[in-house]
């Protein structure tokens, strides 16, 4: 990398830290904590293992929810491929379900499933399933009909076509669905914890905020951000390995969609 870029980025980093320090000196550490306090606390929490414990809880909710909601949602489009009428009948319900603000259902899930892991898993699943479903459907619909014709000519059965053409062609889309959904899954787990929980990073943020322990809020937020970045990296790595047959592509689209 260009040395000037490194210097520039270092300057930005120092400016951010300095601005933060300035805010905490001016408004008081009760509102902004301070960079050093946050670092100190971060190391403390890391040492005590508490941060690991809370993060693991959040990740567990995100992972279980993603699998529970994502796997059936990834398989459904394959089942619907040969049943266009059933697909057309269900379509408005899928579109409607996608439009439902799932986060607004969080209190309902809490009411139904209690304050433990279950409501968060349900919330995550409800969000992930639609993202994966629509992405996979796009993949199944995008299957090159010429490949299908050519395969039929050389003797492929319907099962062969599903296995050798539709499946490998649509898997990248299903995976893209999971990749797009990953940050949402973690976010949804945290929202569930913010609303009602006694464990997890969301709980940590919320309890820090109610105790005016701003340092704890910042520590948890930073941890959360780092986790999302690492998960994004891992999922991206995994996807590239899985799709090594494809020509190299630029990875911009992931940024267009997210939030």
């Amino acid at each position: 990398m260009n040395p000037r870029v490194i210097v520039d980025r270092l300057v930005v980093f120092v400016l951010v830290i300095a601005g933060w320090q300035l805010c905490s000196s001016y408004f008081g550490t009760i509102w902004f904590s301070s960079p050093w306090r946050v670092l100190d606390r971060f190391i403390d929490e890391l040492r005590s293992g508490d941060l690991f414990f809370q993060a693991a809880y959040t990740l567990k909710a995100a992972l279980y929810g993603s699998l529970l909601g994502g796997i059936p949602a990834a398989l459904l489009p394959f089942a619907l491929r040969r049943r266009p009428v059933a697909g057309a009948i269900l379509d408005p319900y899928f579109v409607g379900g996608y439009g439902v603000p799932k986060l607004a259902l969080a209190p309902l899930f809490i009411l139904w499933f209690g304050v433990d892991l279950e409501p968060k898993v349900a919330l995550v699943a409800s969000i992930v399933s639609f993202l994966v479903f629509f992405s996979t459907t796009a993949g199944v619909n995008a299957v090159n009909s010429q490949y299908v014709n050519v395969a039929r000519v050389f003797g492929a059965t319907e099962r062969d076509i599903a296995r050798h053409i539709v499946w490998p062609g649509a898997i990248p889309y299903a995976f893209a669905g999971f990749r797009i959904a990953a940050p949402y899954a973690i976010g949804a787990a945290v929202v569930g914890e913010l609303i009602s929980s006694n464990r997890g990073l969301g709980f940590l943020i919320q309890s820090g905020a109610t105790d005016f322990d701003t340092t704890l809020v910042f520590v948890s937020l930073t941890t959360l951000t780092m986790i999302v970045i690492v998960v994004n990296l891992l999922v991206g790595r995994c996807e590239r390995w899985l799709l090594r047959w494809r020509p190299a592509q630029r990875g911009l689209t992931s940024k267009v969609i997210g939030a």
């Binding site: 090159n144 010429q146 490949y147 014709n149 050519v150 039929r152 000519v153 050389f154 003797g155 050798h164 053409i165 490998p168 062609g169 047959w245 494809r246």
Partner: peptide
Amino acid sequence: PGWNCQFGYVTQDDNLLPW
């Protein structure tokens, strides 16, 4: 299609499966 593998068909596009 292909009448039981009696007819081969080479199309305009190569239609090789990319994966």
